[in-house]
């Protein structure tokens, strides 16, 4: 069983950690700060109901993630689908020729296992995620970082069918692969 510590110590213990998560997901320092503030407010109000089956940190991050998804859902709903789909669609057409073959050969990535040991690699990955269109970036967070299943993601993001989701995930990954290929593995645009 986990217990909560004195709320006066929350800020110094978790403030910056929550902020970094928020900034990564929301990509805007002002909105990230506001979301962290709201998280502490909500946590204070909910602390009597803390059941103790997760650590304090996990509990706070959970509240933060709810706030973030609420915000992103709103933003994404207001943004036309077509614009973003177009951006990801263009990549597909640049990558494959008319008969669906790779336009240029994929080069082997050198020492990929070393990449995971390097701080710098994760900076590049973070940069690549930050360049994704908003909907694709959110799907990345929910699927690859939070590990949510397809059904849950569709519900959270108002996606009408899992088939649509799988297509979007596929295009998102293709975009990220391309970005890593260029910026980490140092290869020219395929």
């Amino acid at each position: 069983m986990h217990k909560l510590s004195d709320p006066n110590s929350w800020l110094s213990q978790y403030g910056d950690i929550l902020y970094r998560h928020a900034l990564f997901r929301l990509r805007d320092p002002m909105i990230a700060e506001e979301t962290v503030q709201e998280t502490f407010v909500a946590a204070l109000q909910a602390r009597q109901r803390f059941a103790g089956n997760a650590s304090e940190k996990t509990w706070l991050i959970g509240i933060l993630k709810h706030k973030i998804i609420d915000y992103l859902r709103k933003i994404i709903r207001e943004r036309p689908h077509s614009e973003e789909e177009q951006a990801l669609f263009v990549l597909q057409n640049e990558t494959f020729d008319g008969s669906g073959h790779w336009k240029t050969d994929l080069q082997q990535w050198s020492a990929p296992e070393n990449a995971l040991q390097q701080e710098q690699f994760f900076n590049v990955l973070e940069m690549c995620v930050s360049k994704l269109p908003p909907r694709a970036a959110t799907l990345f967070m929910l699927r690859e970082i939070d590990g949510l299943d397809s059904g849950t993601i569709c519900k959270e993001m108002d996606i009408s069918s899992t088939n649509n989701l799988w297509v979007m995930l596929s295009r998102m990954r293709m975009r990220l692969r391309e970005c890593l290929n260029i910026h980490w593995f140092g290869q020219k645009k395929d």
Binding site: I17, F122, L125, R177, N181
Partner: peptide, 25 residues
């Protein structure tokens, strides 16, 4: 192969984000 690396590295990205000490409130 490259998708696999992408997946494995993404799973570790959270820890990296949390430790980014240059980003603070």
């Amino acid at each position: 192969e490259q998708l696999k690396l992408l997946r494995n590295s993404s799973a570790k990205l959270n820890a990296h984000i949390e430790n980014c000490s240059d980003k603070t409130l």
